[in-house]
Amino acid sequence: MSERDLSPAFTLQDAREAGLTKDQVYSLLGREEIERVGRGVYVRPDALQPALTALAAATALREDATLCLTSALVHHDLSDAIPFASDIALPRGAHHPTGLANVTWRSFDPQTFHIGREFVDAGEGATVAVYSAERTLVDCFRLMHQEGSDIAYEALRRWLRRKGNTPAGLLKVAGSFPKALPRIRQALEVLL
C-alpha cells in the first residue's frame, strides 16, 4: 500500500485500518510524502487545496467539523482578511480535539448547527463542510461582539453586490436565529 491509497487527510488509526503500520507512516513522513498537521493527523499536501488543509485535517478527526466565520467569509470571497487560523465549528458540547495546528475551534448550538451547511471538495475527493455565505453572514452579525461589526458590514456589502443574492434569501436563513434577525434587518435597511 502507498500513501496514494490513503485519504488526503487521515489519522494514524485510518492508516492502520488501511493496512499501514506506524513505522510505514513514519517512513512516509520522513520522505516528506505526507505532513503531520497535528497529533496523530496527517495530510498529503499535494492532494489538498492549501486553503482547506486545516479543515480537511479537522474533518479527519471530527466528521462534523465545519468552516465558519471569517474563514468561511474568505472562502466565499466576502472578505480580504488573512486569518492566522481556520475558524472551525463543532456542535456545542462536542469535544474539541487538541493538538491540531492553525485551528480556532468554535461551538455552535446543536439545534441550528446544520443550517446552511454545504459540502465542497477539498481535493482528490476529500469532502469538507463549509457554512453557506448566507449562514456565515448571519453568524457574523450574531457574533458581532466577538468578530467586529466592520467585518460583518463589509461582507454584507460584498454579498449584496453579487448577482443573484437577495435580501429575502438572507432573511430566510436569519429567521432561524431570532437574536440576529433584527440586526440583519437594520443592516439591510441601511445598505439598501
Rank of each mutant, 00 (worst) to 15 (best):
V37M: 04
H75T: 00
R142Y: 13
G125L: 01
D87R: 00
A187E: 04
R36D: 04
T112W: 05
S71G: 14
A60E: 06
P50E: 13
E3C: 10
A85E: 12
L137M: 09
D5W: 04
A65L: 07
A72W: 00
T66H: 05
F113C: 06
Q49S: 11
L29I: 05
S71K: 03
D23E: 12
A187Y: 04
A126S: 07
A18D: 01
A174N: 03
H145P: 07
T21I: 00
G30C: 01
T11Y: 06
V190Q: 13
A155L: 06
A101E: 13
P182W: 03
D77M: 06
L78M: 10
D80S: 13
R31G: 03
F141C: 02
R161I: 00
T21V: 00
Q24M: 15
R117I: 06
D150H: 12
L6I: 05
L6G: 02
F141A: 08
Y153L: 14
M144F: 05
D80A: 10
E63G: 15
E134N: 09
E17H: 12
P91M: 06
A54D: 14
R142S: 14
D139P: 09
L181Y: 14
I88A: 08
A81E: 15
R183I: 01
T59S: 15
L156P: 07
L78I: 07
V138E: 04
A60M: 07
L6S: 02
A15T: 02
E147D: 09
G99I: 06
E189F: 06
T59W: 02
V128P: 00
Q24C: 09
S7I: 00
G38A: 05
K172W: 09
F177W: 13
D80P: 00
S2I: 12
E32K: 15
D77N: 12
D121E: 11
P110M: 08
T11C: 00
G93N: 06
L78V: 08
V43E: 07
V43H: 09
Q24I: 12
W159P: 06
G38K: 05
G125W: 04
L191D: 02
T166M: 10
V190S: 10
L156A: 07
L192D: 12
E17Q: 14
D46C: 00
A168R: 15
F108T: 02
V25H: 06
A47K: 12
A122G: 08
A15P: 01
A129E: 01
S176C: 08
F141R: 07
V41F: 01
A47G: 02
